[in-house]
């Protein structure tokens, strides 16, 4: 008898869920990558991507549920169907495209080194200047940086384009350490366990404003290029209809300046994708 009640309750829940699933899009974000996405006071998710997600959903006339998910499980959970989309400053890379699909890009990814002012790495060449790592001009700069970071401890967040960048361009040179979040490698930069970190420049710039990061600064060029890619909404390969919906509204949001406006609100610079 009891079992029957439980089973029918489960059945009810299941049907309720299916009925609801029609126009609800579940979006995962990391919630620890300020100012892109982070948990604000009272544990409410905030940031550039939260605002953008809400705007996109409004355009799609869909109801959105935004959930926080650890970065290292964010792609497996998407393919497992725990949510339908990822908006977590995730770069579109060929490797990721083997297992998932991406919408049209809604932001460009710019990465940078950060180091403590009193360390030998505080004055890397070309500080603050944009540099595409794919260009010819990048070669001498990267070589000079490689010499300077030889044997130094450099922190990156695991499974990110920053870790791919370190692996691709400075293999065997620096002592690269992988962290679960950027906050954790920032702690270790401040406590002098690390000589430098590499992460998204907007995220680093925001983190450096905090008191406990006093004395740290961005150093070296503002890197862009293929290894960093553009940032798009991560989707399951088979959800082509959802991809088409996201593509349309993202293009519209880029075209009418919404992305630029939100970008300037959160980053103080425009990171909207340039054609």
């Amino acid at each position: 008898m009891k079992l029957k009640i439980i089973l029918s309750a489960i059945g009810l829940l299941a049907t309720a869920h299916v009925a609801q699933a029609e126009d609800v899009i579940r979006i995962a974000t990391e919630g620890a990558y300020a100012p892109w996405n982070f948990s604000g006071p009272n544990n409410v998710l905030e940031g550039f991507e939260i605002d953008l997600a809400n705007d996109l959903c409004e355009r799609m006339k869909a109801k959105c549920e935004i959930v926080a998910q650890n970065w290292d499980g964010i792609i497996p959970s998407l393919t497992a169907g725990k949510y339908d989309a990822i908006m977590a400053a995730m770069s579109i890379t060929p490797k990721r495209e083997e297992v998932m699909a991406f919408s049209a890009p809604y932001a460009a990814a710019i990465n940078s080194f950060a180091a403590m002012e009193d360390s030998g790495l505080a004055n890397l060449p070309e500080t603050g200047k944009p540099l595409s790592v794919d260009s010819e001009a990048a070669k001498p700069v990267l070589e000079e940086i490689a010499k300077k970071i030889q044997g130094k401890a450099v922190g990156v967040q695991g499974s990110t384009t920053a870790s791919a960048f370190m692996e691709q361009y400075f293999q065997g040179g620096a002592d690269v350490r992988e962290y679960k979040t950027t906050e954790e490698h920032n702690f270790d930069l401040a406590s002098a366990r690390l000589d430098a970190v590499v992460a998204n420049a907007t995220v680093l710039a925001a983190a450096l404003e905090k008191d406990d990061m006093k004395g740290a600064k961005l150093t070296g060029p503002l890197f862009s290029g293929k290894v960093f890619g553009m940032i798009g909404v991560g989707l399951r390969k088979e959800d082509t209809a959802l991809k088409a919906r996201f593509d349309d509204v993202i293009k519209a949001a880029v075209a009418d300046g919404t992305v630029k406006k939100l970008s300037e609100k959160w980053f103080k610079v425009d990171v909207s994708p340039q054609e």
């Binding site: 290292d72 792609i75 497996p76 393919t79 990721r96 499974s159 992988e178």
Partner: peptide
């Protein structure tokens, strides 16, 4: 592995991030 040690689980996490086959 949560504090950057590359022992068996740390390596597993790194390998997963390269292959997405958890």
């Amino acid at each position: 592995s949560t504090i950057t040690m590359m022992e068996v689980t740390g390596l597993a996490a790194k390998l997963i991030s390269a292959t997405y086959r958890p």
